[in-house]
Amino acid sequence: MSTPEQEPFWRSKSLEAMTRDEWESLCDGCGRCCLNKLVDDNTHEIHTVAVSCKLLDLETGRCQNYKHRRKFVPDCIMFTPKTLHEHLKWLPDSCAYRLLHDGYDLPEWHPLVTGDPNSVHEAGYSVAGKPIVSEEELSDPSDWFDYIIRS
Rank of each mutant, 00 (worst) to 15 (best):
S2E: 12
P4Q: 02
P4I: 00
E5A: 13
E5V: 14
F9S: 07
S12L: 06
S12A: 11
K13I: 02
T19A: 03
D21E: 15
W23M: 00
E24C: 09
D28Q: 14
D28I: 06
G29A: 09
G29S: 05
G29C: 09
G29I: 06
C30P: 06
C30A: 10
N36C: 14
K37N: 15
D40Y: 10
E45G: 00
H47N: 04
V49I: 05
V49A: 13
A50Q: 01
A50P: 05
V51L: 12
K54F: 01
K54P: 08
D57R: 01
D57H: 04
T60M: 03
T60K: 06
G61P: 02
Q64I: 10
K67Q: 06
H68T: 15
R70L: 10
R70S: 10
K71E: 15
F72M: 07
V73Y: 01
P74S: 05
D75A: 08
F79S: 11
P81W: 07
H85V: 12
E86H: 10
H87M: 05
H87F: 14
L88R: 13
L88M: 15
K89F: 13
K89W: 12
W90R: 15
W90L: 15
D93H: 15
D93I: 15
C95D: 10
A96V: 12
L99N: 07
L99D: 08
H101C: 03
D102N: 12
G103M: 04
G103V: 01
W109H: 05
H110V: 06
L112H: 11
D116P: 15
P117L: 03
P117V: 02
N118A: 15
H121R: 14
H121N: 11
V127F: 08
A128T: 10
K130R: 12
P131M: 03
P131T: 10
V133N: 07
S134V: 09
S134A: 00
E135I: 00
E135P: 02
E137N: 10
L138T: 13
D140V: 02
P141E: 02
S142M: 09
S142N: 09
S142E: 09
D143E: 15
W144F: 03
D146G: 13
I148R: 13
I149H: 07
